[in-house]
């Protein structure tokens, strides 16, 4: 595990390349421990080989994002759900 990390707030830019709403303010539930909270509160590791958002409570990967060769891969397996406030 990397020694340096920031928090989910720092994923705001990369996720805006894919989503039209701010995902960091959305609430997600960890599929590992059930911790439920804003993705901004998670811990981010990376950027190589990809960005990984881990659960702040149990450390399970919630979201993995890799970018390269003009493509983006997004793995959301670790999240049971993401709850967004519906846009206007």
């Amino acid at each position: 595990m990397s020694e340096t990390w920031t928090d989910g707030n720092s994923l705001g830019g990369p996720l805006r390349d894919v989503f039209s709403v701010d995902v960091t303010a959305a609430v997600g539930r960890c599929g590992g421990c059930g911790n439920t909270g804003p993705l901004a509160e998670g811990r981010v590791f990376g950027p190589s080989p990809g960005l990984i958002l881990r659960c702040p409570r149990c450390g399970q990967p919630l979201l993995r994002m890799a970018r390269g060769s003009g493509r983006t891969w997004l793995d959301l397996r670790g999240l049971e759900f993401i709850e967004f406030i519906s846009p206007e």
């Binding site: 039209s20 701010d22 967004f84 406030i85 846009p87 206007e88």
Partner: peptide, 11 residues
């Protein structure tokens, strides 16, 4: 609760 805004492309 405030509605979320649909955000434009982040250039």
């Amino acid at each position: 609760m405030a509605r979320a805004a649909v955000l434009g492309r982040l250039n």
